[in-house]
Design a protein around this nucleic acid. Sequence first.
DNA 1: ACCTGAACACCGTTCAAGT
DNA 2: ACCTGAACACCGTTCAAGT
Lengths: 183, 183
Amino acid sequence: MPTPAKTSADELVAIGIALATEGGVDAVTIASVAKEAGIKGPSLYKHFADREALLTAIESTLLGELEATLRKARGRTPRQRIIAIAHAYRAFAKSAPRRYGMLYRKSAAGNAALGEVYRASSRPLFDEIDAAGVPPARTLNLARNLVAFMHGFVSMEIAHAFRLGGSLDEAFAAGLDTILAEL
Amino acid sequence: MPTPAKTSADELVAIGIALATEGGVDAVTIASVAKEAGIKGPSLYKHFADREALLTAIESTLLGELEATLRKARGRTPRQRIIAIAHAYRAFAKSAPRRYGMLYRKSAAGNAALGEVYRASSRPLFDEIDAAGVPPARTLNLARNLVAFMHGFVSMEIAHAFRLGGSLDEAFAAGLDTILAEL
DNA sequence: ACCTGAACACCGTTCAAGT
DNA sequence: ACCTGAACACCGTTCAAGT
């Protein structure tokens, strides 16, 4: 007779996110996740192939949450909505810096599902770039410029790699302004 | 009578860099580094307080190598030298993607020495921005825009997070062109 | 002064056994 | 079908002992 499931892949992911928010990737161990779910370590392997699969599932879920957050950004014009998206992105990262460290951790080469999630999470930005009337030949490069800037900026901010004082709020806004000059 | 040292902090760092180049942070274990140095694991603690201290020493050394690489970038005008620095940065990252993952791994808050290394590694860029005659009030923001873009771009490229085809060489060049429009 | 062996708590993972 | 206990190789770290 089958024993009833005490947990689920979704619950394990949610627990993993909570642990990562608190203590980063290192806090997401098989034992710690299992314990929170009320099971033993080895049982986790009925839900995920290995720890790396769990971490990837967590990353996918987080990117889905990030996308949902970015979609809520509001503004009067496409340009203002792009700026709102960028600020929402930075706020998402800074609200839980260790959780942000779960993103883009390993190469997603050969992982089509994760690749699709990457694609989806940048869609809000693409939609607004299109709405702004940027010519198709420029869309991809502009989106990549923005995405690289946002990810790089918050990563270095979280790492405390900006060391020369001055306002980071201002630096972020100024960077956006430069990148969006063509709009 | 003191036993002669079989290794040194510098050698352990060099070994750590070699291992990280091959297999990333995860490959830099106490045992693997010690083994390559011809000592046993516990002896490593005579040279570094713990694994994290070793990883930080590796990061510092790598940032020093990065700075030296960037200083070799050549160009006719300050603007061209900034572009050359950016391409040298990307080449440094792509030549050893896993080694690049050793950078900006943890918060450097409260680590003044690492902070100074961060500062030093961005100096080549600051020097050329100054040489380009950018007004002092703009220097910091422009440097941060560039640094964020470079780090973000190569990080996402290494993670295979750019998923919509097109030329990444072109995207990188176009991003630089946009950011340096004021020059 | 640096290195070692033994020991500890913890980690990811496997697997046969339980329901 | 999912969960468990026992086991394994490995990990970071401590410490008393060796030279």
